[in-house]
Design a protein around this nucleic acid. Structure first.
Lengths: 266, 266
DNA sequence: AGATATTTGTTCGTATGTATT
DNA sequence: TAATACATACGAACAAATATC
């Protein structure tokens, strides 16, 4: 285990912390963050202990705790109790980043059209990139996921489960991308489709066409990936997304029409 | 001003908070968040006061403060002192969401190729959407921004300033989008280009070709937007992005070659 | 402009929970 | 099991900010 970091150039840092005013914890958090960067700390490294931070930064325990809570909320550190415990640098997980980003879009009302415009622009590109280097094991995983919804659903519950499974097919696809930005964005779009209330309502309605066409396209996609054929993969995904967009928009219109009377928007 | 929220069903909430164990502040934060959603609080609404939260939730002041700090870090609330003060719901700003998202990509090394792959897929679509309804005032803003780099730079400093101004042209463009997802993503990509260290090094080198071609494309874009011509706007942006990608990748190769010896990656 | 009341922000002492040895 | 080292939680007192009169 690496030794705890010894903090240098404390005086410079202390000057940046307001003497008694507002937002002291945030300022302390920023200071600690700068140290992390300056010292090139990487995930797994430990920060100085609480009492040491208190002494070095010249702030109280409560303030240090709030500052660490700020960093913890950003998923930059995690703390452990006990001997050898303390705050440890962590790599910000995609899940955490997704949750924080979703907050931003909570009050803006995202439409299904918005999401599909993005998917149409990105997912064909994603699979085209993937085709040349995708591993056989990854293709196998896609096949396995697909098998969860090749048979028609027997109930409303199964209907919903299949929709989610279909979305997770695309989430897995996104996870295979070598472009972190592209992969994250596509996965985020799928997560929005999984969680938006409008979508949840749609998933409660039977929709044989979407399922059948979806399966058909995905069979073609797997075929194209197996053949390492980027152009075909791209074309298949483009058609897939366009079809899904058309059907989802039609269903959105139906659902919102049925619920107009109890719309919460004033 | 709306009256402060009175908290109901406290007992249910209290049960979810661990009695003495770890992560009490997070649990309290989650509880408050659920209240916000359950009561349909919107930006501007006030949360109960600190002392009331302490009483209602049965936790200490420090714990409540840490919980509020968690929400504050997520940009969900902001607090004010004084009479009538307290914690107020806020709309999570794009800036804040951007900063939190950037944390996730900090340890993953994003390449210029990754960014431009996304820009090529998204920005042409963005301007095509924009063309039919963009306001004359917005076109005027673009023109004004462009004027900051129509003349060749006289120094390295001016070189960098012009690069940033050019990127902010695209940031403004993204801000005009009616698709929040598309707008946010494009703006985020531009912000990455502004802040990545590799890019900063590139901007220190003179690059007349990128500037001249950029201005030329942007003149064409403004022309197309003025004519409300979506197809031309899309085509121009596509060419613009492809050219920029080619030049940036070439410069990236040069810069990294020059700095290979002091690369920090082990 | 100044005094006052209200509410958050900061500190410190103390006690408790938890994991390592 | 006991001792130790660390974070976690609580409460009281005080400081700072701001709205109102």
């Amino acid at each position: 285990m690496k030794p705890p970091v010894t903090i240098q150039s404390i005086d410079d840092a202390r000057k940046r912390i307001p003497s008694r005013g507002r937002n002291r914890p945030q300022a302390v958090a920023e200071t600690i963050k700068e140290w992390i960067i300056e010292h090139g700390l990487t995930p797994g490294d430990r920060l100085p202990q609480e009492h040491q931070l208190i002494a070095d930064l010249g702030v109280s325990k409560g303030t240090v705790r709030e500052a660490l809570k700020v960093l913890e909320t950003q998923d930059l550190v995690r703390t452990r109790t006990g001997p050898g415990g303390g705050a440890f640098i962590t790599e910000v997980s995609a899940d955490h980043a997704t949750a924080l980003l979703a907050n931003h879009f909570f009050f803006k009302d995202i439409s299904i059209a918005d999401i599909y415009e993005m998917r149409i622009a990105l997912e064909p590109q994603l699979v085209a990139d993937l085709a040349p280097y995708i591993a056989d094991g990854q293709i196998e995983e896609l096949r396995a996921r697909m098998s969860a919804y090749t048979a028609p659903p027997a109930s409303i519950e199964e209907e919903k489960e299949q929709r989610v499974a279909e979305l997770e097919f695309h989430e897995a696809l996104a996870g295979f991308s070598e472009n972190p930005l592209l992969g994250f964005t596509c996965a985020f779009l799928v997560r929005l489709l999984k969680e938006l209330t409008v979508c949840k309502k749609i998933y409660e309605q039977p929709n044989p066409e979407l399922r059948e066409r979806g399966v058909s396209y995905q069979v073609q996609l797997i075929e194209a990936l197996r053949a390492r054929d980027a152009d075909t993969a791209r074309a298949v995904l483009q058609a897939h997304m366009r079809t899904a967009q058309r059907i989802m928009l039609a269903q959105e219109a139906q659902v919102t029409k049925g619920f107009l009377s109890i719309s919460k928007k004033t």
